[in-house]
Design a protein around this nucleic acid. Structure first.
Lengths: 225, 225
DNA sequence: AAAAACCTTACATCAGGTGTAAGTTCAAAT
DNA sequence: ATTTGAACTTACACCTGATGTAAGGTTTTT
């Protein structure tokens, strides 16, 4: 069953939406603490986020941006402001649908199921800056083409992406590549890192693996010209 | 520049749409022969189809279905009938957006660019019955997972898919796999075909490669139970 | 029953990914 | 500036998995 996270500050509308969705075969989680909405949402690990724009602390726009930044969860915006500017804004931020209240139940359900369908099978894809990586095959999609990364390079890139911009220790990478049990020469990791860097450079990827002395490695975006 | 194919029987609206799209950086082709619209459309090899519902011979719905069947071009439906049933219908047929006239220019443009963005990079994916195949890496997407096919198996599957259900001669397959110049043992092809069949079976794919005695091979859907 | 078309299995070969070893470069800290 | 440990590079040998070859089996048609 697909999980939907409903973000709406008006309690009446919120429960109405929740029960409507539940009646239609979704599992629903609601947000009622509006302090740090994006991380609250991500705690639910939803398959889709239904998001209002007018919220207490942070606007739906900001939330949408942050969600899209930290994850690749689909976002459907449902708002009472029927403003073209809002719509343009939302879609530019990466929202997947924009609907206005009052909503037609069927229309909302259909849009939701459409967005979910659109994302189907993409759950194995993780997003990096300017590219996609298939976690199962380590097929890398960039710039309209695709390449298969060698398994080890793929695993390293995967673990780096899962920590978006954060440093990842050698140990963590090593665990991911060879499993925590085996001991592997530090150097083996080194060599594979070099190989990954070379591959990424040869693909003109807009990011690099950067060493953080004494700590580990991280992905950084390379902004050229 | 992206090509958009405009399908609209009202000449005034048609030219208005065309020039509007052209002014916004698209190359536009229009349909003015409504005899066999789907194939007329596909002749243009568009990146997106903008489709009316009320048309002389064939309804936009039928056209949409046929387009989605024969290709994987995105379809945006733009119609004057603002009917929820129509919308549900269209989206179920695989339409990517549903908009009603009168349209707001900006909204239409935004939706179009969104749909195009959504399809970006998928130009290397060809659709088979129940699965997708990446033509570059021969990564096969089925049932929420993905597998990499060996190059030869991938090439064979590709050439078979490009002829959707039609027979393909051994020669054609051989040309695709090894190039027309080299002569290769008939048996090499045979072995690779067997390997492909085995792979497909082990993946529980809903189709098989079937031999057509004296002619070649074709993909057939296996309908079990 | 014989021939033709199609299929299967096993094996040797080859390419590409991988770990190892040995050595070089880099950058922070004295 | 020198030192020192961390980070990097290159070359090589090994191993896995994809491929072509060979030899023989099965199915279909006449």
């Amino acid at each position: 069953m697909k999980r939907i996270c409903v973000v709406e500050d008006e309690p009446l509308v919120r429960t109405e939406l929740a029960s409507m969705l539940e009646n239609n075969g979704y599992s629903v989680g609601v947000i009622d603490n509006f302090d740090d909405v994006p991380s609250e949402i991500l705690k639910h690990e939803p398959d889709l986020v239904l998001l209002d724009i007018n919220l207490p602390n942070m606007s739906g726009f900001q939330i949408c941006r942050e969600l899209k930044n930290k994850s690749s969860v689909p976002v459907v915006i449902l708002t009472s402001r029927d403003d073209l500017k809002d719509e343009l804004n939302a879609l530019e931020l990466g929202a997947d649908e924009f609907m206005t209240k009052p909503y037609r139940k069927e229309r909302l359900l259909l849009r939701i199921s459409n967005v979910l369908k659109r994302y189907e099978g993409r759950s194995n894809l993780i997003e990096g800056p300017g590219f996609l990586l298939d976690k199962l095959t380590y097929t890398l999609y960039i710039d309209g083409t695709s390449v298969i990364l060698p398994k080890n390079q793929g695993k390293i890139l995967e673990v780096l992406l899962q920590n978006r911009g954060e440093e990842v220790s050698r140990q963590e990478i090593s665990d991911k590549v060879w499993g925590t049990s085996e001991f592997i020469d530090e150097n083996a990791l080194q060599v594979n890192l070099t190989r990954l860097k070379k591959t990424m450079a040869s693909l003109n990827m807009p990011c690099t693996v950067q060493a953080v002395r004494g700590v580990g490695y991280k992905i950084v975006e390379t902004e050229e010209i």
